[in-house]
Nucleic acid binder design. Structure first.
Lengths: 129, 129
DNA sequence: CTTGACCTTCCAGTGCGGTGGAAGGTCCAT
DNA sequence: ATGGACCTTCCACCGCACTGGAAGGTCAAG
């Protein structure tokens, strides 16, 4: 399987596949006599794993850590659990921060809705912000 | 007022102040005979405006747009209202996306909590992700 | 034999909001 | 006059996940 076929089969770009190889997410591909990358079907499994990790909001670095554990011969279950728990905690914090920010911005917007330009000192740029 | 004093007075770094000047968020500062930047007090007002904008999650580019409108002699109220309404819509979408993602990750975590390493194909790296 | 699609490597750039460091000038106190 | 704190410009780099493009090689069809 050539790189373009793998890209089409997995919905990635050839650029991204070479980047993934450089980043250690894909093992260095076998090469044909003329130097073209030649993939086995298991590259699809690997890319699906990367896609699932990305969908869970993991960074490529975190995904690579899981892969490295698997490659070292150990099942990565424990690490994956830690990763997911940390991810949930991060998401909770992000969501909470965004909600606080939303409240703030709504207050600003409500203030600005009744704005009177004459109230504003030009030095402040805009007193409603 | 020299750049270090302005930095201390506003909780920014001197690096950031020069960067803001280059970015058009601060007007080019007056210079002393020896070339040092020499700020008036209104630079503090301007930086407070930038800080408020940042706190509302606006990008420096958006903040600069508001400043440019003010500099052009127009009160930026209308633009600020649009900006804030768009910002609220963006925040709502972000929060909703993160909540969906959180649900997904919680399901994954719950699956992984009862993981049996023997269930996993090594090619999949980790079936719980 | 040429055309066009595909592949290779390598370097650079994207957006964001800055930070780091080098090389050099200035100011003030001792 | 010397030390140290401060200032100047300029260029490079951070993380993140790629993307764009140049210059060149390969392969199959017509």
């Amino acid at each position: 399987m050539r790189i373009g076929e793998l890209a089409a089969a997995t919905g990635t770009s050839t650029k991204a596949l070479r980047f993934y190889e450089d980043s250690g997410l894909l093992p260095p591909a076998n090469r044909t006599g003329s130097g073209y990358r030649d993939y086995e079907d298991d590259a699809i499994d690997r890319l699906n794993f990367v896609r699932r990790g990305r969908a869970a909001g993991l960074t490529l670095k975190q995904i690579r850590e899981v892969i490295d554990i698997r490659e070292s011969g150990t099942a990565p279950c424990g690490h994956v659990q830690d990763l997911l728990n940390t991810r949930i905690a991060d998401l909770d914090r992000q969501i909470s921060d965004l909600r606080t920010l939303r409240d703030t911005v709504v207050h600003l917007r409500d203030g600005a809705a009744n704005a009177n330009p004459a109230d504003c000192r030009a030095e402040d740029v805009c007193r409603y912000l």
